[in-house]
C-alpha cells in the first residue's frame, strides 16, 4: 500500500518531466522558451523562476479551490500568480541582479505564462494540496529541463560557449590569445542565437521527442498485443481440452 502511494506521487512528478513535458509535449509557454534560451544559464534561471512560481501558485490555488467561485476563477488565479511573480522579481533584483537583467521583460511575463495558468486550471483546482505541489514541481522541472537543453544547444552552436557566465568563463580548445598575429576564423553558426535558430532547435527537439514517444508507444502496443495473443491461445487450449474430455 505504501509502495503504491509512493509510486503514485512519483508518477505525478514524472508526468511533468517526461510524459507530458510542458514544452515538448503540451507545447505551452512558447514565448519564454524561444526568447530566453539564447544561453543555457538564462534557460536555467528562467526555468527555476517559473518552477518556484508554479509550486507556490499551485499550492495556493489548491488550498483555495473550494473558496474561489467558478465564474471569477481566472482573475483569481492571475492575482495569485502575479503576487508570487512580484515577490520573485523583487528577490531576484536584490540577490541575483545579473539574472534579473538577463531575463528582462520575460520575468514579469511569467504572470501570463500558459504553463502556470494551465496547471492551476487543469490540476490544482481539482486536486489536493500535496499532489498539486508535486505537479508544480514536476512541470517546473520539465520546463527547466527543456529550457536548459535548448539553451545549451543554441549557445554551443551559436556562440561556441558552454554555460557562459556561470563556470567562470572557461574557454575550450584554441583561443585567440595563442595567435596574436592571425585572426582566427569564427566558425560559430550565429543563426542559433537569433530567433530563427530558436524555432529551428525547438522544431528538431520536438521531432526527436515525438519519435521516441511514438517508438515507445509502438513497443507497448506490441507487448499488449502479444499478451492478448497468448491469453487467447491459452483460452483456445483450455477449450480444446474441455471438448476432448466431453468427447471421451
Amino acid at each position: 500500500m505504501k509502495g503504491q502511494f509512493l509510486s503514485n506521487k512519483l508518477g505525478i512528478v514524472k508526468n511533468g518531466i517526461l510524459t507530458s513535458n510542458p514544452t515538448f509535449r503540451l507545447v505551452l509557454g512558447m514565448c519564454p522558451t524561444l526568447a530566453v534560451t539564447t544561453s543555457a544559464f538564462n534557460g536555467l534561471g528562467m526555468g527555476l523562476a517559473a518552477t518556484v512560481v508554479l509550486i507556490c501558485s499551485n499550492a495556493l490555488v489548491s488550498l483555495l479551490r473550494k473558496v474561489i467561485p467558478d465564474k471569477v476563477r481566472i482573475p483569481a488565479y492571475v492575482l495569485i500568480i502575479a503576487t508570487f511573480v512580484t515577490l520573485l522579481e523583487m528577490l531576484l533584483k536584490k540577490f541575483i541582479p545579473t539574472l534579473y537583467s538577463a531575463l528582462g521583460i520575460y520575468l514579469p511575463l511569467i504572470v501570463v505564462n500558459c504553463i502556470i495558468l494551465a496547471r492551476a486550471e487543469a490540476f490544482a483546482s481539482m486536486n489536493k494540496v500535496g499532489d498539486s505541489i508535486l505537479d508544480g514541481l514536476g512541470m517546473g522541472l520539465g520546463f527547466t529541463l527543456a529550457l536548459v537543453v535548448m539553451g545549451f544547444i543554441r549557445e554551443f552552436l551559436g556562440a561556441g560557449t558552454i554555460f557562459a557566465g556561470s563556470l567562470g568563463d572557461i574557454e575550450f580548445g584554441i583561443t585567440q590569445d595563442a595567435f596574436p598575429n592571425y585572426k582566427l576564423p569564427d566558425y560559430s553558426l550565429s543563426i542559433f542565437v537569433l530567433p530563427a535558430g530558436g524555432f529551428l532547435t525547438l522544431g528538431i527537439l520536438m521531432a526527436i521527442v515525438n519519435y521516441i514517444s511514438d517508438k515507445n508507444k509502438e513497443k507497448k502496443d506490441k507487448e499488449h498485443e502479444a499478451k492478448l495473443h497468448r491469453a487467447l491461445e491459452v483460452a483456445q487450449a483450455v477449450e480444446n481440452a474441455n471438448t476432448q474430455k466431453e468427447e471421451e
Partner: peptide, 8 residues
C-alpha cells in the same frame, strides 16, 4: 539564407 544568417 541559413548561411547568410550564420556567416554574414
Amino acid at each position: 539564407i541559413f548561411l547568410v544568417l550564420c556567416w554574414a
